[in-house]
């Protein structure tokens, strides 16, 4: 059996390989990528949670207290902890990758990527503290 029936002599016969549907499970770095991308679901969930909060606030003081105690029920608390965890991953990956997309120059000197990332983290810290202060003290 030197030559099989599907082969024409001296004609190339390319081997084409398909990407597996589960390619993102094949390597750790691919999986980390999918983990980063899937934070989108939790960002959307966080928005829904915030809007539910606003909806409860609209219905009056009693509804707000009911909603707040609903939030402290263990299954809801666990779910919101997961949402919070993934939004943190979103923030961290976002700030880490930001310097790749923006090339900042001060005059002719390129700003080092680590400094751009540090700037983002600093802004994150300032914003978080300011918002926490505004919400906790009522401005």
């Amino acid at each position: 059996m030197t030559s099989h029936s599907g082969y024409t002599l001296h004609h190339p016969q390319w081997l084409r390989r398909r990407v597996s549907t589960w390619w993102w499970l094949s390597r750790w770095r691919y999986f980390k990528f999918i983990l980063r991308e899937i934070t989108s679901v939790f960002v959307a969930a966080a928005v829904v949670l915030l809007l539910l909060y606003v909806a409860a606030l609209r219905r009056g003081p009693d509804a707000l207290i009911a909603f707040q105690s609903w939030l402290s029920r263990p299954p809801i608390l666990a779910a919101s902890a997961v949402v919070f965890f993934f939004t943190l991953i979103h923030s961290i990956t976002w700030f880490n990758l930001a310097p790749k997309a923006m090339k900042v120059r001060l005059g002719n000197i390129p700003v080092p990527p680590a400094l751009i990332a540090a700037g983002h983290y600093f802004a994150w810290l300032v914003i978080s503290l300011a918002l926490a202060w505004i919400i906790l003290t009522g401005g």
Binding site: V43, A46, V47, L49, L50, S80, V83, F84, T87, L88, H90, S91, W94, F95, A123, W124, I127, S128, L131, A132, I135
Partner: peptide, 10 residues
Amino acid sequence: SALFIPVLLF
């Protein structure tokens, strides 16, 4: 969302 959502959730 990276800047504002974690602190609001927390």
